[in-house]
């Protein structure tokens, strides 16, 4: 297990809190539970990425978010991309923070700001083009035929694209995030309002 190093500032360095990143994350699906994090570290214990790399620690990602450090979390070398998406942290968290979902919300924000790795967009583009995540080559048809399977159905791509807002995805990345942001806001969740809503269940 790697050492759980806290990003504590040097004695003469001041911690500057910023709420901007937190407000943005609150508006994205899965992001709004980050407010519940009390830094217990239960998420780290079973995290395979933390076990195999000292560059990844879900508790520290939550701490950086609570401090509003967009400079670290939305940087090109942000640790968020090392998450294995295994959901162990979601399983362990006593506060229902759902850290993996918060990390996915951060990835969405990175995409909107144009700092997501190309490999993420590649698979998304396949889906938007064909309705399938994988590439359908002639070999695929032949293998299916040999196995006695029916030909692959053609997914209704146009219908699927109707559901996406330009600006929110690969269809029109150049349009920018403005339209999507307005729609996200209309969701109307403030951290406080959200907390009381969640606690009701």
């Amino acid at each position: 297990m790697p050492a759980d190093k806290s990003p504590e500032p040097e004695s003469d360095e001041r911690v500057v809190l910023s709420f901007e990143l937190r407000r943005e994350i609150d508006q994205i699906i899965g992001g709004n539970h980050h407010n519940y994090c009390y830094q217990c570290g239960a998420c780290v214990a079973q995290c395979p990425a933390a076990r195999f790399s000292d560059r990844f620690n879900p508790r520290l990602i939550m701490l950086d978010l609570l401090l509003g450090r967009a400079d670290k979390l939305l940087a090109a070398d942000s640790p968020i991309w090392l998450c294995t998406n295994c959901y162990s942290c979601y399983e362990r968290c006593p506060q229902d923070v759902r850290p993996v979902e918060v990390i996915i919300a951060l990835k969405n924000l990175a995409g909107r700001k144009g700092v997501a790795p190309d490999s993420v967009s590649l698979l998304t583009r396949n889906i938007l083009k064909t309705g399938y995540s994988g590439v359908v080559t002639p070999v695929v048809h032949k293998t299916r035929e040999k196995l006695g399977l029916d030909p692959l159905p053609e997914p209704p791509v146009d219908e699927m694209l109707e559901l996406l807002d330009s600006g929110s995805d690969e269809r029109d990345a150049s349009a920018g995030p403005r339209e999507e942001k307005t729609r996200e806001r209309s969701h109307g969740e403030t951290p406080a309002g959200n907390a009381s809503q969640r606690r009701k269940k």
């Binding site: 969405n108 998304t124 997914p155 219908e159 559901l163 807002d165 690969e170 999507e180």
Partner: peptide, 25 residues
């Protein structure tokens, strides 16, 4: 009429609301 579910790692990381809507479809 099905499409990709869509994929819970990359598509969801790119456009969470789009991911949810396509899944709902």
């Amino acid at each position: 009429g099905f499409t990709c579910c869509p994929d819970p790692i990359y598509f969801k990381a790119r456009d969470a609301l789009g991911w949810l809507t396509i899944a709902a479809r």
